[in-house]
Design a protein around this nucleic acid. Sequence first.
DNA 1: TCAATATTTTAGATTAATCTAAAATAATAA
DNA 2: TTATTATTTTAGATTAATCTAAAATATTGA
Lengths: 218, 218
Amino acid sequence: MHSFTEENYLKAIYHLSDGNHRVVSTNQIAEMTNTKAASVTDMLKKLADKNLINYIKYQGVTLTDTGLSAAVNIVRKHRLWEVFLVEKLGFKWDEVHDIAEELEHINSTSLINRLDDFLGNPAADPHGDPIPDRSGTIHHKKLVKISNMKQGQSGTISGVSEHSSVFLKLLEKLGLTLGTNIIIAELIEFDGSIMITADQTKELTISREVAKNILVML
Amino acid sequence: MHSFTEENYLKAIYHLSDGNHRVVSTNQIAEMTNTKAASVTDMLKKLADKNLINYIKYQGVTLTDTGLSAAVNIVRKHRLWEVFLVEKLGFKWDEVHDIAEELEHINSTSLINRLDDFLGNPAADPHGDPIPDRSGTIHHKKLVKISNMKQGQSGTISGVSEHSSVFLKLLEKLGLTLGTNIIIAELIEFDGSIMITADQTKELTISREVAKNILVML
DNA sequence: TCAATATTTTAGATTAATCTAAAATAATAA
DNA sequence: TTATTATTTTAGATTAATCTAAAATATTGA
């Protein structure tokens, strides 16, 4: 098995490469893991030795198939635990990230598969992010940012691309949580803000910055 | 907060001192933590510096009040997770120890208190061991070993003092699980084995070794 | 294209947890 | 009571993960 630390590096590389095989730089990893570039270089050598990444000095890094599947497994655990925390223990969606960050390193396949069943094999976590199934397959939904929608279009809020507690709390306050139906009432040319109708009743205006981080299923 | 490793030492000292302030030796700790005496000595100095233990060179160790409460908290977490694994995820009572050993180090008071409520504030874990409440108080039940019972006495199996998977599986097979009512039918003088009647129906004989590790509420 | 800037790696230390082997202390038994 | 044995501690290394500062490499823009 891989150490707690190795797992965090794999996860960082995974997220930085958009869950793909895209090349990631040392500095990006350093920023995401809150370490220094020199430390990252050391770890990259180690992960390359273990065949979890493809690493060429000064050129950057990609996950190998083994590394990708290890990373996906960590993401699966993280998201399932988040569902547990919200659905079963009653946490708010902005409170679960840090706890899931610890729980994701618990190592037991039978635990996680039983948890998956206990939760009813959810397709997405409390933020709408898809949960990889036990084979590691991720069933992506096609989602669009509110900021890319046209006037008159409608859809259901199904995800966010910003996971900070401040942002999530704001959406909560605005009533723009997952499952909310929205219609684009008007695009304000002046500052890019957008007037929307939520659940056929409430009218509100959100900034472009907010609109960019809300994902809608049309 | 304390490191994973420090927590394991505290827990070891706690168990070795019977949850009390009894003096524990370096070698005992080394055996319980699967380390060498020299490593234990190093850690004892560290824990003493942090005021978690009272340590006198060559004399042994006791937990301070702070150390005791930290240890009790770990035990609380361990036992609550065991209840979760058995009651909610359907694990057998002999399968949960190792997983709970990892989960007990997850650090969040709100998590563990919510889990406690979710489980219905259980008084004991799947092996009958008492679960400390959120203030750290342990409500002990008076239990006696079957090996100390007299002919004709009866009671309910409410705990075990041996937690190995082999032993627990044996009890499972014999039908001597928690909640089973037993009556001491006969004490066999020859080898100390004991004939018992379980749930008023099944008669069976258990060795003295087995009898010593089953705890009964009279 | 090449000099300035940015990025990445190497070199050399540090900290936590561990080890083995040797020294110090305690316990025990003749 | 003292010699032998057992326990515990110290001394000195090792491994994983990290750091800072300096060196190496890559990128950029005049």
